[in-house]
């Protein structure tokens, strides 16, 4: 049921040329070099240490690995992370 809704929403977004992150509630990541990361549409922090960060998403979570990771700003929908970012991985 959830999957069908997702397919319809994706088709509507394609048809109306609306950004998918608005319609589908999927995360939008902006990475500036390897020092700054903006993440929109998150669902809270699962784990946070200076080397590893796991951020909850609407589906699955995002794992960020790096050094001296800091949460520079935290808002209900947005998060800004600074530090030396080595990798970003999605987990369902």
């Amino acid at each position: 049921m959830e999957k069908n809704k997702d397919i319809i929403s994706r088709a509507m977004a394609d048809l109306l040329e609306i950004p998918k992150d608005l319609v589908l509630d999927i995360p939008k990541i902006t990475l500036i070099g390897k020092s700054e990361l903006f993440l929109e549409n998150h669902r809270g922090i699962i784990e946070y240490s200076s080397q590893r960060m796991r951020i909850n998403l609407s589906r699955g979570f995002l794992e960020i690995l790096g050094n001296q990771l800091e949460i520079r700003a935290l808002l209900p929908d947005e998060i800004k992370i600074e530090g030396e970012i080595n990798s970003c991985r999605f987990f369902d």
Binding site: Y48, S50, E70, I71, R72, A73, L74, L75
Partner: peptide, 9 residues
Amino acid sequence: GIYIWDIKW
């Protein structure tokens, strides 16, 4: 709804 920033260990 509490705004937090500069979070670090």
